[in-house]
Write a protein that binds this DNA or RNA. Structure first.
Lengths: 342, 342
DNA sequence: CTGAAAGCGCTTACAG
DNA sequence: CTGAAAGCGCTTACAG
């Protein structure tokens, strides 16, 4: 006999399809007694709405924009590629993704891009945020227009974004420190920190978590002030080189942002690759090679494909006013050593 | 004007809906010239089949069985719980999951359970396999009847299963060794290995990877023969206790299977918790507490929710003869230190 | 080899 | 407050 349908409900409750629908979707304007009759039928028949039929009938479409700073940062490049792949895969599910590329480390350009989106008929926006007041305002502006917003990779709390899709960056920093502390056990010295920009909340939080654990649990290791390389390998190489020359007792490097190639070059030039313990972020061509040859001790990652898919699921759920399982949507911190790179 | 539909295709190609459908779904029995006309229309109109409409019209249902050994193993208990949750969530998507619980470490019971499934109208089966010849045969029997089979958590290659859903256990073992080697750097000694059963391929592979890396990269650490605790905390405690008493130079323990509570108890009783470096598998109430208080150094995990969802996606794709993205379906090895437990 | 018509299980105007 | 009817975009017998 198959599963119960709305027709079965209507017959069992002695009402029309329209009324069944009103009750099922809590549209109101139905007598309490009628509601009860329908709900009784739902329980008795074990009714469950068929998702495909509902989607088809509703003709709902989801238009989502992904705002991503793109430049030389390999991670953001692969994030963009994943969104593009996803866009193709979702076109047959009434989900249409567009990508808005903005210049990196340029808060003003980001704000302009977000403001421009206000005039578009969008269901939701995912944005790799910087944590500036004007950015928070621009996010708030979208949210105020009823557009669901999630921050991606780097958060901007208090902006009106509905959710943050990305790893817990403080935890990542703490993990990096914990690995560093255990890997260089028994040795004292300094640790250099190379970041992209402290205006990116993800970088700031990683540094915070890192310093916190280093100070409290591995006092024999002293963190140097973070240098900001703005994702440039050249800047990273120069800046780290200066630190290495100035402090011969550097035993570790925490590479928080992009520019791993520069970190590696600075170490290689001084014959320090493999001798200094390097913990870096994101698996890229260069970081993977460095892991394989022992120049990097560990790499912390986030999976851009997971992040893109999670952002889409959440934005669609927000648009439907449906709940989503925050547990399922948690983005894991992947830790790679030489022995478990995929 | 909206997206192109089959009606648009039919009109553009000058054929009927039925013919459009035959071409789109490669059902054959269509003249080459007609096929071409339709395909031209598909390209010109940028047609993409609407997934919801196709699902609704096809009336396809997926009946999937999950065969899981259940007993005291907390990981398998939470896997079962995840499958149950998923079953509820998927009922409105024409996917019906059933759970077949079998006694653990009992190859014969597993084979019987699999054989019984042959008489049921199933679309697919996910099974936590043991790597026995009779189990492989039983899996082959299902596959021969056209039922898609995936192995879950522990693989049985050469059985006819279409895919394995779980972590790379050799890589997990190598990772454990790598962490152990770095964490106890500079000290020589023995490492005890506590497993569930070497008949479980996942356990055997973890041991293999672990010993491989220990031998080649950390020769100052010697692995003791693995003890098999059959997921029993009591057996694990006794067996590890004997090893600890016999070998005062044990500096590390690799806990491959369940029974972490027993491992902990054996160490505590001897005042060795925190002094011996323990790497264990799976985040449970006990292992989490041990990580927090420093008794365990690291925990390697697999996410049972991810595994259940991946198994369903793959079994549905197999049933549809559709491709699936093996990269997306790769199950990550999660590494938890005290600083990144969720 | 091809087509006309009905149907999948919902939702949506529209009318009352 | 309630209902009859049409429609969403596919697929499926059935007929020719």
């Amino acid at each position: 006999m198959g599963r119960a349908t709305v027709h079965d409900l209507a017959r069992a409750a002695g009402v029309s399809l329209a009324t069944v629908d009103r009750v099922l979707n809590r549209r109101g304007g139905v007598r309490a007694a009628t509601i009860e009759k329908v709900e009784l039928a739902v329980d008795r028949l074990g009714y469950r709405r068929d998702a495909a039929a509902a989607t088809l009938a509703k003709q709902r479409e989801y238009r989502l924009a992904f705002v991503i700073p793109t430049g030389v940062n390999s991670f953001l490049v692969s994030l963009t590629a994943e969104v593009r792949k996803l866009a193709d895969a979702l076109r047959n599910q009434r989900v249409f993704l567009s990508i808005v590329e903005v210049p990196p480390f340029d808060g003003e350009a980001l704000v302009q891009a977000l403001d421009r989106l206000q005039s578009q008929p969008l269901t939701g926006v995912a944005v790799v945020a910087t944590d500036h007041a004007p950015v928070r305002l621009a996010v708030g502006g979208l949210a105020a227009r009823g557009v669901g917003v999630v921050t991606l990779v780097s958060d901007a709390p208090g902006s009106g974004r509905a959710h943050y899709v990305g790893i817990d960056n403080s935890a990542a920093g703490r993990t990096a420190a914990s690995l560093m502390g255990r890997f260089v056990r028994g040795i004292s010295g300094r640790v250099a920190i190379v970041a992209g920009s402290m205006l990116q909340r993800d970088h700031a939080e990683r540094r915070f978590g890192f310093e916190q654990v280093l100070r409290t649990e591995y006092p024999q290791l002293t963190a140097l002030p973070a240098v900001e390389a703005l994702d440039s390998a050249a800047v990273a190489e120069t800046a780290l080189g200066i630190e290495l020359d100035r402090h011969p007792d550097i035993v570790g490097v925490y590479s928080i942002g992009a520019g791993n190639r520069g970190v590696l070059a600075a170490l290689r030039k001084r014959g320090l690759a493999g001798a200094v313990c390097v913990i870096a972020h994101e698996l890229t061509e260069h970081s993977r090679a460095a892991l394989a040859d022992g120049s990097f001790a560990a790499i912390l990652c986030q999976d851009p494909g997971h992040e893109a898919r999670s952002a889409v699921r959440i934005l669609c759920a927000l648009a439907d006013g449906a709940p989503f399982d925050a547990g399922h949507e948690r983005i894991h911190i992947d830790i790679y050593l030489r022995d478990n790179v995929p």
